[in-house]
């Protein structure tokens, strides 16, 4: 990382920083981080998308800020500094949501505030931003936020579709007319345990396609 040559902004290495968390280094399915919020906000698609975007912005900007001042942070208080940066970002996002999408903000309730405790954030700051330049750190944060958000949206899609019979609030099942044929929404899918099972199914699918992820016994 110390080479003085100027790297192009979207070099292959930088792009990989973005794509790796979407697949082989996914924060949820591979590193199993940020599970709590993945269970809590995936009942409906809309809150899940808002949550995904919020986490993406918070991770990317905190990564950028920490990477920019990483030389000046005393080692002994670095965790506190990181927390201050994250908390500032989270409060900004929270206020923004309250101002512009109040209904979603109410649905997400404490979980926006709890982004502070999301392990993905601290993990990326410690593991990446503290040792890399601002631009790659920004991309890394964006990628990890997107990897987290991707799983959230997939899980939320199936939970909303099968549990409430709607997609993004649109009553698909009702329009298809399956209720008159005896179909009923599955009440268990709305409960948090089913989100865990969905995440498990995604992990199963991913590992059966990508054998290198399977740990040696």
């Amino acid at each position: 990382m110390n080479n003085q040559e100027k790297e192009p902004m979207f070099s292959a290495k930088n792009l990989k920083l973005f794509t790796a968390p979407l697949g082989k280094e996914n924060p949820i399915t591979v590193q199993v981080l940020g599970i709590c919020s993945a269970l809590a906000v995936t009942v409906k698609l809309k809150p899940a998308i808002v949550m995904a975007l919020s986490v993406m912005i918070v991770t990317a900007v905190s990564n950028l800020v920490i990477a920019a001042i990483r030389q000046y942070i005393p080692d002994r208080i670095r965790i506190i500094v990181q927390l201050v940066v994250i908390a500032t970002m989270v409060i900004l996002v929270d206020q923004f949501l309250k101002a512009y999408v109040f209904d979603v903000s109410k649905q997400l309730s404490v979980f926006v505030g709890l982004i502070i405790t999301n392990c993905i954030l601290m993990g990326r700051l410690e593991a990446f931003a503290m040792g890399n330049k601002p631009w790659p750190s920004f991309i890394d944060g964006l990628g990890n936020g997107a990897g987290y958000g991707m799983i959230l949206v997939i899980v939320a899609f199936f939970r909303e579709f099968l549990g409430s019979g709607t997609i993004y609030g649109y009553p698909v099942m009702q329009k298809l007319g399956v209720y008159s044929a005896g179909y009923e929404n599955n009440g268990m899918i709305i409960l948090p345990p089913m989100a865990l099972i969905f995440v498990g199914l995604i992990i199963w699918l991913q590992r059966s396609r990508n054998k290198s992820l399977i740990e040696n016994k």
């Binding site: 009923e184 599955n186 009440g187 268990m188 899918i189 409960l191």
Partner: peptide, 10 residues
């Protein structure tokens, strides 16, 4: 148990 929690009405 699956049915009990999924379709309690039944």
């Amino acid at each position: 148990a699956f049915l009990f929690f999924s379709y309690p009405a039944w």
